[in-house]
Amino acid sequence: MNEPDTRAPDAVRDTYLPPVKILVAGGFGVGKTTAVGTVSEITPLRTEERLSAAGVGVDDLSGIEQKSATTVAMDFGRITLDVAVLMLFGTPGQERFWFMWDDLLRGALGAVVLVDTRRLDRSFAAVDFFESRDLPFVVAANCFHGEQDYDPEEIRDALTLREPSTPIVLFDARRRDSVRGVLLALMDHLIASAEPAHAQRT
């Protein structure tokens, strides 16, 4: 298979690469923006969307929908590979609004849930959300100042992860290799999940 330079300005038709969507979630201040920025090939962008809860559990009174609308902002970064373009979406922290956001999960291959072990509770909502919707994810614990007081098993227990195979990795959101390692762990997890159907072992 020939692999043309996908970044060429005059890219030909067959270089229209499939987009692959990966969500980067976690509570406020856990390093989502840093992680997306570290690994992205472009300066991360902020994309906004206005969500409205009109009609969701409320009577349809005029004016109500205004009050229950919110603007959420996502960090967007990308990594162009020879076979696909990875699109990284740093999700907004307002998890209570995610349920009315159909587009958030659509087409997502998997997710990374970032956690700060000093504030694990901030990432519970993201874990619950992906578990309840069966989106495969990895947990990545940011090592602030290069230190981590907990080992992955302690983190697993504290998060009460439903799926024992969910990987937990330690990483540093400021190091590109480290963030890429988290994405590789996600790919390994997705491949392992897809493997039974192929009856293969690694």
Binding site: P18, P19, V20, K21, I79, L81, D82, V83, A84, L86, R106, G107, L109, R180, L183, L184, M187, D188, L190, I191, A194, E195, A197, H198, Q200
Partner: peptide, 21 residues
């Protein structure tokens, strides 16, 4: 449009993404 689930779960495609990454 985004890939449909069967495409996204294609193991060869996942492996190619991994090696590209």
């Amino acid at each position: 449009p985004p890939m449909s689930d069967p495409d996204a779960m294609n193991i060869d495609f996942l492996r190619r993404i991994r090696s590209g990454l």
